[in-house]
Design a protein around this nucleic acid. Structure first.
Ligand code: MN
Ligand code: MN
Ligand code: ZN
Ligand code: ZN
Lengths: 138, 138
DNA sequence: AAATATTTTGCAACATTGTTGCATTTAAAA
DNA sequence: TTTTAAATGCAACAATGTTGCAAAATATTT
């Protein structure tokens, strides 16, 4: 509980119940969440718009990062100490076609690629789709 | 012109002017296109819904593939001989933050990654964002 | 070449997703 | 406690995507 305030303060954000609730949603569910997921999880507690703005703020402040998807954007916690300035990620995302969940594989990072002459890379996003261990087991 | 009919026939599709126009848009513009891009390019010629359905059909038949993006889904031609059955891609996509264009780097394929025990991969999507050669030059 | 069967299209209506302006409320600072 | 600045809710809107159905177009058969 106090941990949430710490995190928000650490990113120079005022503590509001919405921000606390959204943040704890990300912490509790371990998988990536869409705006709709949050709307579902938080019920009627907050206005849709407020959730959109909370996501936008969290993005800017380096609390969450975007997770690309072929069906719709999702978001996940930045594990590392991201900030407004440094906002770097190089881990892989895995989306299970069975359970639909997308997860950060934090300690699995994107292999280097040598781009043709002239291309100046800045950020990388790798999404692997398939079946996750839980769903393979069944 | 006749080439377009060939391609459509080859994927067991009836030739219609909308399909020809959408297909040639993909051929002419070399970069990935969104539904909105097509709507812009084709003007008032066709209904929005028809373009949506054309994209869906092209996807199913293996004429185009999805290109992940952090702002919205795009589509690009399948260079290989994709079909309704086999629809595989392993090339890299590059999005330029300067000109906004996203391109298939056809001959640059996604490096192998060894996933943790239990993960069963099926498809891969790598988007690299940065500056493209044209925009670097300026 | 015409008739038929089948697919595609346009339109309307709707659902979902995301954005903006502004008055009110809330949090932090004084 | 008062003041100041930021965050929220609401309304209205814009953009994006989906569905049902009648009309039009394509391909097939006669
Ligand atoms: Mn992640
Ligand atoms: Mn591609
Ligand atoms: Zn799963
Ligand atoms: Zn560029």
């Amino acid at each position: 509980m106090e941990q949430l305030r710490e995190t928000l303060k650490g990113h120079h954000l005022r503590t509001t119940t919405c921000r606390e609730d959204v943040l704890s949603a990300f912490i509790n569910k371990k998988n990536a969440l869409s705006h709709g997921d949050l709307e579902g999880a938080l019920g009627e507690s907050y206005d849709r718009v407020t959730i959109y703005r909370t996501l936008k703020t969290f993005l800017e402040k380096g609390i969450i990062h975007k997770v690309l998807d072929d069906e719709g954007l999702r978001y996940a916690l930045c594990s590392q100490q991201c900030s407004e300035e440094k906002h770097q990620h190089d881990h892989i995302h895995f989306k299970c076609s069975a359970c639909g969940k997308t997860n950060c594989l934090e300690n699995l990072h994107i292999p280097n690629v040598t781009l043709p002459q002239g291309y100046q890379p800045a950020s990388f996003n790798l999404l692997i789709q398939g079946t996750c261990p839980e769903c393979v087991a069944e």
